[in-house]
């Protein structure tokens, strides 16, 4: 039954059997709304369009798609697509993420570098 992992990419779920629908709503966290706004702005500036974003999520593979939340997948897909397009490098992003983590920790009053 390994053919299904080729014929069905992670996003291609139409027609599969699945669980009952959980109708509870989820209010977006502030960062999730920022992530959505970022997606729109990336599209407006022709950096990443909707279709590229969808394919970028699919390219994460079913394990990551299954384990990350909706906007977590978007963030990782944006990073990978921007690397592929040469807009950012992995080093740029890793360095900035360390800086952001330290800055946010300092703003919260934690000891610098705690938990890193």
């Amino acid at each position: 039954m390994s053919d299904v992992i080729v014929t069905r990419l992670p996003n291609d779920v139409g027609g599969l059997s699945a669980a009952p629908i959980d109708q509870s709503d989820h209010v977006l966290a502030p960062w999730e709304k920022r992530c959505h706004a970022l997606a729109d702005v990336l599209d407006f500036h022709k950096l990443i369009n909707t279709e590229e974003k969808r394919r970028g999520v699919e390219a994460l593979g079913s394990e990551i798609v299954g384990k990350l939340s909706y906007y977590e997948r978007w963030a990782v897909a944006f990073a990978n697509i921007l690397f592929q397009k040469g807009v950012l490098t992995p080093e740029d992003l890793a360095k900035r993420m360390r800086e952001v983590e330290r800055r946010l920790a300092a703003e919260r009053g934690d000891s610098p570098g705690a938990g890193i």
């Binding site: 920022r34 970022l38 946010l104």
Partner: peptide, 23 residues
């Protein structure tokens, strides 16, 4: 209120692209 790895990633991507003049 500790930000997740992915929240930090979103912030870092956005800041880098703003600094480089993409938007």
């Amino acid at each position: 209120g500790q930000p997740s790895y992915y929240e930090i990633m979103e912030t870092a991507i956005r800041e880098l692209l703003v600094e480089r003049g993409h938007f």
